[in-house]
Measured scan of single mutants.
Amino acid sequence: TETRTFTDEREARRFEQEARDNGKDVQVRESNGKFEVRVK
């Protein structure tokens, strides 16, 4: 599991989409204006 934290939602979404395109299981959590993207 890899976790990346972004402050920019667009960057978080781009990373999320890229991971999904690669067939990964992705979860995005938002807290305090930060976006935590977990990739399995």
Rank of each mutant, 00 (worst) to 15 (best):
V28Y: 11
A12K: 01
R13M: 08
F6G: 03
D25F: 12
G33V: 00
R13W: 06
F15V: 04
K34H: 10
R29H: 12
A19R: 04
A12Q: 01
E30I: 13
N32T: 03
T7K: 07
Q17M: 09
F6V: 01
D21N: 13
T5I: 14
A12I: 00
G23S: 03
T1R: 07
V37N: 01
F15I: 03
A19G: 04
R10Y: 11
R38Q: 13
R13E: 04
A19W: 06
Q17G: 05
E11N: 05
V28N: 02
R38G: 06
F6Y: 06
V26S: 02
D21W: 08
F15W: 09
K40G: 12
S31W: 14
G23Q: 05
K24W: 15
T7N: 10
E11G: 03
T1F: 14
A12V: 03
E2H: 11
R4Q: 08
F6H: 01
N22G: 09
D21K: 13
F35K: 01
R20G: 03
V39E: 04
K34E: 10
R10G: 13
E18Q: 11
N22Y: 08
T1L: 11
K34T: 13
N32K: 06
Q27L: 12
F15H: 04
R4L: 10
F35N: 00
V28T: 07
R10W: 13
Q27W: 14
A12M: 07
T3L: 12
K34F: 13
E9F: 06
E16Y: 08
R20E: 03
A19N: 08
R13Y: 07
E36W: 08
R14W: 07
N22E: 12
F35L: 04
D21F: 09
D8A: 04
T1N: 10
K24Q: 10
R4F: 15
D25T: 11
V37E: 02
K24S: 09
N22T: 09
E9W: 09
V39Y: 06
V39D: 03
G33C: 00
R10Q: 13
D21V: 09
T5Q: 08
E18Y: 10
Q27K: 07
T3N: 07
E16A: 15
T5E: 09
T3K: 06
E18G: 05
A19P: 00
Q17K: 11
E16D: 01
E11L: 07
D21P: 00
E18R: 07
A19V: 05
F35Q: 01
K40F: 15
E30P: 06
A12N: 01
K24V: 07
T3E: 06
K40S: 15
E11I: 03
E30Y: 15
V26D: 00
R29Q: 11
F35G: 01
V37I: 08
K24L: 14
